[in-house]
Amino acid sequence: MIEAGLTSGHDTEQIVVRAEGNMASDMNGEKVMFSTRTGKYYNLGAVGGRIWDLIAEPIDIGRLVDTLASEYEVEREMCEREALAFLRQMYRESLIEVRPS
């Protein structure tokens, strides 16, 4: 149900935050993480690592996208679309929690 929300027109009003039980570290400019929930290791990459930093505290997706668009050379629409796709991937792996605003 929440994932469906991430694909709706109101997705940028939702709040995302890291889920508990993940250990992350920087490796060659990319963020590598271990999830105690899934028992898997993940590479979030450089931009994914920045997203991970930004969701240390609850943040609404619109503000998250605004911050990314101000820091990176990218059109806001593309930034939002690709950031949402990444958040969906993380949600499916139980790496984040999504809450209504």
């Binding site: 590598v32 898997k40 290791y41 993940y42 590479n43 979030l44 990459g45 450089a46 931009v47 994914g48 997203i51 101000s70 820091e71 990176y72 050379e73 990218v74 593309m78 930034c79 690709e82 950031a83 990444f86 991937q89 993380m90 792996e93 790496l95």
Partner: peptide, 22 residues
Amino acid sequence: MAKQQWQTPELETLNVSETMYG
């Protein structure tokens, strides 16, 4: 301040041997 280059964020699942030993 110059903006950084955007790369599509992807969640890559690693296997342990890749993570620990290259």
